[in-house]
């Protein structure tokens, strides 16, 4: 399309070339109407909040408060550790589930059935309250302790979140492993590679392309789900924001603050996810997807042109 416009005035061109098309583009009235409605709604929301009694200053005042920063750190720590438990557990469960061994396969099935079929919050409370039924933990000669000393709030949170996540990750990994063409396994076996090597060198690297996008989703989901552990006495971002809100008399403002921090963290994670996906796409597509910066550069030249331009 760009070229057509450049040669639009070329009437003196040699007769062989057909005349460039100059057509009037279709008018998209729907776009203008929807824009007007959206702006009106936004204005209404902004007006409503400006009328509310909101102490906006509280947010910047507490944004980098020590407690908030500690909370952010703990939220991140919890996210990372739970996801590590989830991913490692998920891979193991997926391989067990797909194995020819009927025992391991049924164990994996049962695990997934249980942990996926009950709510995380219920699982968290379960772990938290196991102390009511067990006084000691006794692993024979290896480890022995009072239950209350053993089951710290951090361990409760990790078990609750991590074991639940493993069930979801198992299904994601299983889907990824099944998505790899059977011919790949055959080719690898035909070369004399063992099951384990085939899995590690051939199948899993290709499964990653299918596994990574939903796993990125899971990480972002996990970051938000960590706010549930406030209920089992492990202090993280949400819990600290709540505490500050109650003491400083600005509870709603502190919820805004927490929401802003969660948004910042999930946004950063989304960017990371994009680059990881790009890495695992190598070899599967002839050209890697453009990075945002490359897209911006490409769009500079087609700005102001309707969708479908030839840029």
């Amino acid at each position: 399309m760009t070229e057509i416009e450049k040669t639009a005035g070329g009437q003196s061109a040699p007769p062989a070339a057909p005349e460039a098309i100059k057509a009037i583009p279709v008018k998209h009235y729907g776009r203008y109407v929807s824009a007007v409605i959206a702006i009106a709604l936004l204005a209404a929301i902004v007006y409503a909040f400006s009328q509310g009694k909101i102490n906006w200053h509280a947010i910047p005042d507490y944004f980098f408060d020590d407690r908030i920063l500690t909370g952010v750190g703990k939220t991140l720590l919890l996210t990372v550790l739970s996801m590590v438990i989830g991913i490692v557990g998920g891979i193991v469960l997926a391989v067990m589930r797909l194995s020819k061994n009927p025992v391991t396969s049924s164990i994996a099935w049962f695990y997934i059935w249980f942990f996926r079929g009950t709510p995380v919050l219920v699982q968290l409370f379960l772990w938290f309250n196991l102390g009511l039924v067990f006084e000691y933990i006794n692993l024979g000669p290896i480890y022995k302790n009072y239950w209350s000393d053993f089951m710290t709030p951090l361990l409760t949170a990790l078990l609750g979140l991590g074991l639940n996540e493993a069930a979801y990750m198992a299904e994601i990994c299983r889907a990824g492993l099944l998505a790899v063409d059977e011919g790949q396994t055959e080719a690898s076996h035909a070369l004399g590679m063992s099951h384990a090597k085939t899995l590690r060198r051939v199948v899993i690297p290709q499964a990653m392309r299918v596994i990574v996008p939903p796993t990125g989703n899971e990480v972002i989901n996990m970051l938000k789900t960590t706010s549930l552990v406030a209920a089992v006495q492990y202090p993280e971002l949400f819990r600290y924001a709540q505490d500050i809100g109650q003491n400083s008399g600005a509870p709603v403002e502190m919820y805004f603050l927490a929401a802003a921090w969660y948004l910042i963290m999930t946004s950063i994670l989304s960017v990371g996810q994009f680059y990881i996906e790009r890495y695992y796409a190598r070899g599967s597509s002839r050209q890697l997807p453009a990075t945002p910066w490359q897209k911006v550069k490409a769009n500079m030249f087609s700005l102001g042109r309707p969708k479908g331009g030839a840029a």
């Binding site: 063409d181 790949q184 080719a187 690898s188 035909a190 590679m193 090597k197 060198r201 051939v202 599967s284």
Partner: peptide
């Protein structure tokens, strides 16, 4: 199977490896 080479109708090359990596894979791993 090490001693028996096989060539498939649908090639079944490993798509995440370059041509050279495809060829070098089995000697290194096996």
């Amino acid at each position: 199977r090490r001693d028996i080479g096989m060539v498939f109708q649908r090639f079944n090359l490993f798509p995440h490896m370059t041509a050279a990596e495809n060829v070098a894979e089995a000697p290194v791993q096996v």
